[in-house]
Design a protein around this nucleic acid. Structure first.
Length: 259
DNA sequence: ATGGTTGTTCCACAA
């Protein structure tokens, strides 16, 4: 099973890029973040024409997540947001079971700047995510958590670690929250396959020619439990979508699981 | 130290 994750920065202006991507990468499952569309306006038909059915959980203007599954794969046991989220909480999590694998699609709060309310919310959200996962699953289950974590786990995941030191996306507190998820029983699929690979990023700011200079960060991740890590044959970053006209500022991460 | 860009919505704000 091939699973991809991609923060599309609005799904509606990105449908053409999504079509190009799925034709090229041929994923079985695609987890999308920042769809920025309410469910009534989700482009289900366009996605159907690409050969996928979709579960989606979105809102107007901000946030929103969706999971696409190739026709023939059933989407089962859909969960929307965290168990302790209020009804009107930002829509940032969608989970389902596909082919016996629990797929959890997350759009972690950005956090804005260290010391702000949004930053505290980000840390609290990550702690609640871990509690939610731990309450539902054991590390021995087949669980995949992917999405835009808005955290660069280590210095090697940052183009200029000195400049980013202590900045949001790179603080010790954010890194500790992600490390805590790993300690529970998740493996960073990309880093496990490429332990020393530097310059492998998933997001580049739109400004200052950041992509051209490869001035990026690796903040989009696929975390998998050990039973899946033992069956993971490949984990890659596909830079092609970021090279297209009017791209998302993120590019997809792709993993292959022998399940 | 500042500014640069994009998407959505409404004339700002989040990223």
């Amino acid at each position: 099973m091939r699973v991809a994750t991609w923060n599309v920065n609005s799904i509606r202006p990105r449908l053409e890029h999504l079509a190009t991507f799925v034709k090229s990468a041929s994923p079985d499952v695609v987890c999308l973040q920042e769809t920025k569309v309410e469910d009534a306006k989700f482009p289900e038909e366009a996605i159907g024409e690409l050969g996928y059915r979709a579960a989606f959980f979105g809102q107007k203007t901000y946030n929103g997540v969706a999971i696409l599954a190739r026709y023939g794969l059933a989407i089962e046991d859909v969960q929307r947001n965290l168990a302790d989220d209020a009804e009107d909480a930002p829509r940032r999590l969608l989970a389902c079971t596909i082919d016996g694998v629990r797929i959890v699609d997350v759009y972690v709060p950005n956090g804005q700047a260290v010391g702000t309310q949004p930053f505290a919310y980000k840390l609290e959200w990550l702690a609640r995510l871990e509690r939610d996962l731990a309450s539902r699953h054991a590390p021995t289950d087949r669980v995949l958590v992917c999405g835009d974590f808005n955290v660069a786990p280590e210095a090697i995941d940052v183009h200029d670690p000195k400049r980013w030191e202590g900045q949001v996306l790179c603080t010790d507190a954010e890194r500790a929250a992600v490390a805590s998820l790993r300690a529970f029983g998740f493996v960073d699929a990309f880093r496990e396959k490429h332990p020393d690979l530097a310059g492998a990023f998933t997001w580049w700011d739109y400004r200052m020619g950041a992509f051209r200079r490869n001035a990026g960060l690796r903040i989009d991740h696929v975390l998998i439990t050990r039973p899946l890590a033992d069956r993971c044959t490949s984990a890659t970053i596909d830079r092609a979508p970021r090279t297209l006209e009017r791209p998302s500022d993120h590019t997809p991460v792709i993993v292959d699981l022998d399940v």
